[in-house]
Amino acid sequence: MELNTEFLTDEERRLTSEFFDKGYVIRDAEDRPGLDRIQTLVAGIAADHLGLDAPSDPGAFLNEIHTRVTGQTLNDLRLTVFNRMNQQEGFRRDYFSQARTVLGMLVGNEIAMQRRVNLSIQMPDDDSSILPVHADVLSGDSPYEVVQWTPMVDCYGTKAMYILPPKRNQEVQDSLKNYPDADALMEDIRDDLVWIEIAYGQVMVFNQNLLHGNVVNAEPETRWSMNCRYKGVFTPYADKRLGEFFEPITLRPASAIGIAYQLPGGFRDA
């Protein structure tokens, strides 16, 4: 379907063109104080879990967390931080505010947000946190979703993630059944992958229909990143349903009135 851009602003046209061309956009976080609150919250929960005082430099503490935990204790730490951050009042609002304008341009102004924001921690040389090449839409996600990917530390090289550009992705998915496994697929597309470089203070929104993943982190620092799905409230759902996985967060008055409205009894009886 060809997109009609006649009614878009110049900024919306630029963002739309970039998203279609690359499959992702990276922008500065829109609410830096809110982002810093999240980083401080995460570092504080992690420190508390380890019996330490809250760090004075949250970013440095997160980058060096591999000096304080092992591969065997990492998942307990991740689950603790994941659960406690999602219970924190205002956390999801702060997270959404980092890409509010971008999401409004790409998704719409009536948005459903994932009810719990995901957390990834990938220590150097740890192969337990690898997500092999995949496309979320092939595993039961709606093709109408986008993902907001927000680093808590600078991410670069193998400390980040990769994504297959849209044109090459279409070619590969058209012949996906010909690949015997993920390793064969990865070998074929390796040279076409775009390796994301994104600093703390930036946020990425990407098309989860594209093949993406990560590899063993060969950098000397630990990766901390968060991701969260969004979609238009009234777009089709797949396995992840509204009210179960998604929650409307920017429903407008006309929609709320329309949803609640009931015709008077007998009005259509004839």
Rank of each mutant, 00 (worst) to 15 (best):
G258I: 03
G104P: 00
I259Y: 11
P264N: 08
P236E: 05
V216S: 15
R32S: 10
L74G: 04
D94S: 09
M152C: 13
L131A: 15
N109C: 02
F206R: 08
F245Y: 08
P180D: 11
R14D: 09
S225L: 03
Y24C: 02
D239H: 15
R92Q: 13
N109S: 14
T150P: 06
R32K: 09
I121W: 06
A256M: 12
S17C: 14
Q87I: 02
Y162K: 09
Q262H: 13
Y200L: 06
G258T: 15
G140H: 01
T70Q: 00
I130G: 06
P33I: 13
D21A: 08
T150Y: 04
S120K: 10
V147G: 07
L74D: 03
Q72R: 14
L119P: 05
Q87D: 13
R115N: 14
I196K: 04
P124F: 04
L211R: 02
D183Q: 11
G108C: 00
I130C: 12
F246A: 01
I111P: 00
P180V: 13
G243C: 01
L77E: 01
S255L: 09
E89M: 06
R115S: 15
H212R: 04
L176K: 02
S129N: 10
D36G: 05
L176D: 08
D94G: 08
V81P: 00
P58N: 01
L15R: 12
S139L: 10
W224C: 09
P264I: 01
D192H: 13
G140S: 01
F82R: 12
R93Q: 15
P236G: 05
D21Q: 08
I45G: 09
T158M: 13
R13I: 10
T222I: 07
L15S: 07
G90P: 02
L15Y: 09
P220V: 07
L77R: 02
V216G: 13
A29G: 15
I163V: 14
V137M: 09
R115M: 10
Q202A: 02
Q72L: 08
I259H: 11
L52T: 07
P132T: 10
P124Q: 04
T40Y: 04
H212D: 02
N209H: 10
G232E: 15
V137N: 12
L242Y: 00
R252Y: 05
T9R: 02
D181P: 03
N86Q: 02
V153T: 15
E221N: 07
T70H: 00
L106Q: 06
Q98R: 00
A54N: 06
P220Q: 04
P220K: 10
S175E: 12
Y144I: 06
G90S: 04
P132A: 04
F206A: 05
M85V: 05
N178M: 07
H212S: 03
T67N: 08
A112R: 01
P143H: 05
L193T: 12
